[in-house]
Write a protein that binds this DNA or RNA. Structure first.
Lengths: 202, 202
DNA sequence: TTTTGCATTAACCATTTGGTTAAACCTGAT
DNA sequence: ATCAGGTTTAACCAAATGGTTAATGCAAAA
């Protein structure tokens, strides 16, 4: 059947368009064109723009959180966890470079609605618990040296921000895509070393 | 006269609305309402939405770059410059928390147009030169320990990203505004210490 | 072969939205 | 007082846009 195929094609098209343009900038017509279907069919499968958007947004958000969680499944020392996280998260973002900017800007567009949506889903529970336990672990291990929340922010920032600022950086410094890929690949080691050195005990 | 007053009021309203909603999400009517004037008057002063937007965007972008530059005017050691930058940039962002997300998402919405715009302006020259000389300074001083570009990214990331991710972080962890302010205030010292430690020579 | 029911489309519709126009409104100069 | 200039507005317009509807296609069941 074409059933699932069509629905999937719509979702892929919607994902591309929403990620590129944001909710306000996205056009139902463009999604339909990209999916190779009639615009009315969008409304047949997903009643409205907002519902379609919700589905896409939650999927992307979930992926972002899963990427975060999966670094923590193994029972290891906090240092190993940290390094696993840095490796894995940068790799994830190299595959999906548009995800973080999309998620972050759409949340700040309407934080209250986002909070409401979160409450109904279970994604939140997992991610939230893991973040808090990570911060608590950091605190036990490095509490005397550094505020754990700041350490957490530092790590996340160094992993995520380069992807968010890439278009701007690229415009200013004219880095081509090949160079960028190498830069992000070497970045894993650099960030790990940077953090490790900053946390060295003496 | 009301002349400059009206024009200024339009610009302030436009800035607020564009920063909150982005180009696509902004409505000329909302800008007019916020400025307390008739919508036609917007077109009287600025011919179109795009022109008004261009003015606002370039102003905000310029402010962001000036903030970056002003930390470097003094002829000091690279370490002092770095610390001045961290202090000053976090302070700037505390006053204008929406600036970075606005700039970054609008650039990535249409990087080519942004590059075109940049070429015609002089803002670029200054900022670009300073960034490159900063990276070159970093390289001379810490080149053996760390790739200078990554170090530059690290510092910028740790300063800027918290403001970009605040709405998301706030939604997940329920940090109130007072706590946030304290957190960002203490962050200046934390980031400086973190960077200093990571760069210590032995 | 006919029927049934979902999938798909062309044509439409109502609203929103950026933009225009012609008239009204000031204010300072004559 | 009236004239001339820019400023401001109410009313309007055309295009874009999300959404609907009624008809068509089409495959499996009868």
């Amino acid at each position: 059947m074409e059933e699932k195929d069509t629905e999937l094609q719509i979702k892929e098209a919607a994902r591309t368009v929403f990620m590129k343009r944001g909710y306000a900038g996205a056009r139902m017509q463009e999604i339909a064109d990209l999916a190779g279907i009639n615009k009315a069919l969008l409304h047949y499968y997903y009643r409205s723009k907002e519902r379609l958007y919700d589905v896409i947004f939650m999927e992307v958000f979930q992926e972002l959180m899963e990427g975060l969680e999966s670094a923590f499944v193994e029972e290891d020392s906090i240092k190993v966890k940290m390094e696993a996280f840095i490796d894995l998260y940068i790799s994830t973002l190299m595959k999906n470079p548009h995800m973080p900017l999309f998620v972050v800007s759409e949340i700040s567009r309407d934080p209250d609605t986002f909070i409401e949506k979160l409450k109904t889903k279970e994604i939140f529970e997992g991610a939230n618990k893991i973040v808090l336990s990570f911060i608590s672990d950091l605190n036990n291990e490095y509490g005397e040296q550094l505020n754990a929340i700041h350490l957490f922010m530092n790590i996340i920032s160094m992993c995520v921000f380069p992807f968010i600022s890439k278009p701007m950086l690229g415009a200013i410094t004219q880095i081509d895509d090949a160079t960028w890929k190498i830069l992000m690949e070497t970045r894993k080691e650099e960030v790990k070393r940077f953090v490790a050195k900053a946390l060295e005990k003496r």
